[in-house]
């Protein structure tokens, strides 16, 4: 159907992934970190879709569905954890939760 080169799609996925990763590393707000993880997951899914489209196989899309499921579960648990952290520490600063330092 399309003659979009696979490299372009993969590059887009790579850039999005990299942006999400930067964000995870530079943010201290824990909700931002969660959002960034979502961006990274989305980018990974995009890479699967691109590959699946390139090979004309449904497997890529199925992987995307799995990633989607995983992201949904991860967000629900992650948000519950964030609520707990906020209740315990009265802040969203991830650096405050450093009791396990060596």
């Amino acid at each position: 159907m399309s003659n979009i080169p696979m490299e372009a799609g993969l590059l887009l996925a790579g850039i999005l992934f990299m942006l999400g990763m930067v964000s995870v590393m530079i943010r201290r707000n824990i909700i931002f970190m969660l959002i960034s993880v979502e961006i990274m997951l989305n980018a990974a899914g995009l890479a699967f879709i691109v590959a699946g489209s390139h090979w004309a196989q449904p497997d890529g899309q199925i992987m995307f569905i799995f990633i989607l499921t995983m992201a949904a579960a991860e967000v629900s648990v992650g948000l519950a954890l964030i609520l707990q952290i906020y209740h315990q520490l009265k802040t969203l600063d991830s650096d405050a939760a450093n009791f396990m330092k060596g």
Binding site: M21, V24, M25, I26, R27, R28, M33, S94, D95, A97, N98, F99, M100, K101, G102
Partner: peptide, 13 residues
């Protein structure tokens, strides 16, 4: 290596 275990999530990432 114990020093790297500083409890900061960002550093782990």
């Amino acid at each position: 290596f114990a020093r790297s275990q500083n409890g900061l999530l960002r550093h782990y990432v």
